[in-house]
Amino acid sequence: MRPLPPKAMLARYAVLLPVLVLVQLPLVWMIVTALKAPGYGLVLRFIPGPGETWFEDATGAAKNMYTLGNFRNVLFDADFPFWRFATNSALVAGGCALMTVALCATAGYGFAKKQFPGRDRLFALLIAAMLVPGLIYMVPQYAIVLKFGWINTWAAMIVPHTANIFGLFLLRQHIRSLPDSLIEAAKVDGAHEISIFGRVILPLSVPVMVTLFLLTFVGQWSNFLWQLIVNTPDSKLITLPVGLSYFQGQYSVQWERMMAGACFSIIPVAVLFLVAQRFFIAGLTAGSVKE
């Protein structure tokens, strides 16, 4: 395609770039602050002045402005099983995302393509539940998890968040937009219900499912309060946000360290998004409202 004339192009960049800088500023600020030496977190200078160096030097003659120490503290503290916490977080977030996608895809298909009494009323009811403030679920869900005896189990950490109504909505919208003729054709070929779902619907829904997977993963990766209360302190399943909060106990508000902790919440998500962005945007757009 023929690119825009240079003048129009420049005009657009001139508007976009300042906005882009603003949009990316928090990310950049977080990383820079996390790299600063203690005490420099709230100093609005980025280049070492007299008597300061960039990083620690062996002579110790000058004060360093930047350090990797804030990350080292988290990653290599002998008492802090970073990798165990991170693995747990990944497993919880991944498990929750997988189960969410499975539930939403099957139900999305049911609500989109099947005729059964009460279908629309049930769907509307579920959508209305989306308007309920999320906080309200916490206490009763905890009571249920207790009743089930699920404390310190993967089930408690994963299952309560998997009936994701937004996800159901996304997949149902998408599957509804698939032509019925595909299903009819498969039926004519004698395909079983399960295989219609598996061979026809699922392959066509991959972008939406990946999107839902990522959104769920991202949400659960940083879930703090729920994972804190369903695990006792001796649990083997402690997740990273809970683990990182142990550090907070000890430093009142130390911005450099706090931002290093924040990097663990944001950077994996950013990387994941950048790797899967093509699906992501395609999926979101495929599932969004059109009618």
Binding site: L228, Q248, S252
Partner: peptide, 22 residues
Amino acid sequence: MRSSGVGRWSGPLSERKRRGCP
């Protein structure tokens, strides 16, 4: 329904609680 950061932040109240710990 994410319960994101609740409790991770210390308001002045919890801040002092947290501080108060030799």
